[in-house]
Simulated assay, not measured.
Amino acid sequence: MTPIPTGRLFRTDAGSDLVITRTFRALADDVWAGLTEPERTARWFGPWEGEGGPGRTVKVRMVFEEQAPWVEVRVDACDPPRRLALSMVDDAGTWRMELLLSEVDGVTELRLVHHLDTEEGIGEVGPGWEYYLDMFVASRAGTPLPAFDDYYPSLKPHFESLTTEG
């Protein structure tokens, strides 16, 4: 498989936003369930434990990462089925992101917005999000999950080029 990157970079007053999109022939409620229900997130990202809700922290098992670590993820905002804002801190730094859904005539667009404090490392981060979103697509379609090796390092140049565009 040769994935096609969809990532775009937008400069903001607070830094930069990396935006990656996917479109589904499904209602926003159904896509939302795939993004938020532990048994469904387990299929493409990892299961989570705890009581979700704004201001709460849940534990997510990153089953597709080396050693499948558990990480704490804070729910910063939750407006079903339109917006989920999350943040977490790990060895790589602070991760702030939003999952935004918009539906028109039974077609839902999912935008993953990763709020970046710095564009350093975008060549690694971008391919990872493309991979996870394609994992989400495959989990919904019931098709085989993609391999990360198809995404990295082949998509790295695309994401690095975004930092030089004006």
Rank of each mutant, 00 (worst) to 15 (best):
M135C: 15
T108D: 01
T41V: 09
T118W: 14
E39I: 10
A68N: 06
V60W: 15
W70E: 05
E119A: 09
R83P: 00
T12R: 13
F24H: 01
R56D: 00
F136C: 15
P54C: 06
T21A: 14
E98Y: 01
L27W: 11
T21F: 05
E120L: 14
E130Y: 09
P38E: 12
T57Q: 07
W70T: 05
A14M: 11
L116E: 04
G126H: 02
G128I: 07
E130I: 12
L101M: 05
D91V: 07
G46H: 08
D79G: 02
R82G: 13
E49Y: 10
W48A: 04
G128N: 07
C78I: 00
G123R: 09
L101T: 03
D117M: 12
L9G: 02
D90A: 03
E37V: 09
W44R: 02
E37S: 04
R96Y: 07
A85M: 12
S102G: 13
I122Q: 01
E49I: 02
T108Q: 09
R83T: 04
D134K: 02
Q67I: 07
M135Y: 00
L100M: 10
P127D: 08
I122F: 07
F24L: 09
Y131V: 01
G50Q: 10
A26Y: 06
E37L: 10
V73I: 13
E130C: 11
R43F: 02
P5R: 08
G93M: 06
P54Q: 14
E51W: 06
P69G: 14
T12W: 11
F136A: 15
V75A: 01
R25T: 14
R11F: 05
G7R: 08
F136M: 15
V107R: 06
P69W: 00
G7I: 13
I122H: 04
W32G: 00
L18I: 04
P38F: 12
R22E: 08
A85H: 09
S16V: 09
E124C: 06
T41N: 10
V107A: 11
M135N: 01
M88F: 13
G106V: 10
Y132A: 03
W44E: 00
R111Y: 03
V71N: 06
A28H: 00
D79Q: 15
M97G: 15
L99V: 11
E65P: 00
P38A: 10
L116K: 01
R11G: 06
V71W: 05
R22W: 00
P47Y: 03
V60C: 11
V63W: 06
S87A: 03
P69R: 13
D17V: 11
P80R: 09
E66K: 07
V60R: 04
C78H: 03
I4Q: 13
M135K: 02
P5H: 06
E130D: 15
